[in-house]
């Protein structure tokens, strides 16, 4: 059977078993504070108290960000991107209010706005 003769969905870009690659880079970086904050935020949203989303939904959200993002974003950037998409999709927050708050925070911290 070939890929063309049926309607099979393509292999997900996250579904890596056996794909092959180069040597495993064993360098470990100490997690930066922002990475731990993302871990904590995502953890709390799937936790027993909030149950705002499931881990399965977050994974699905990451698996639908697109291959470019999947391969270029850092691990916790992916988590945050997936989580934001879900919050917006569920109507919990809007993109506009997130953007507005991000601007406020950048001003507060004295950071230049990104593009």
């Amino acid at each position: 059977m070939t890929q063309q003769d049926d309607d099979r969905a393509p292999r997900g870009y996250h579904d890596l078993g056996g794909v092959g690659g180069g040597p495993v880079d064993m360098t470990e970086h100490v997690l930066e504070p922002w990475e731990k904050r993302v871990d904590a935020l995502c953890g709390i949203l799937v936790g027993k108290k909030c149950r705002l989303m499931t881990i399965d939904e977050r994974r699905d959200a990451i698996e639908t960000l697109g291959e470019d993002k999947y391969t270029s974003l850092k691990y916790y950037e992916l988590w945050m991107a997936g989580t934001m998409n879900l919050l917006i999709e569920k109507g919990t927050l809007s993109q506009d209010e997130i953007d507005e708050r991000m601007d406020q925070i950048r001003r507060r911290l004295g950071l230049e706005a990104e593009e």
Partner: peptide
């Protein structure tokens, strides 16, 4: 602590959700 786009986004989302009483 590299404060890139997603680090700032985390702060924004966290503040908004705390204000809503989500946690």
């Amino acid at each position: 602590d590299s404060l890139g786009y997603y680090a700032i986004a985390e702060m924004a989302v966290r503040e908004l959700l705390i204000e809503r009483g989500i946690f």
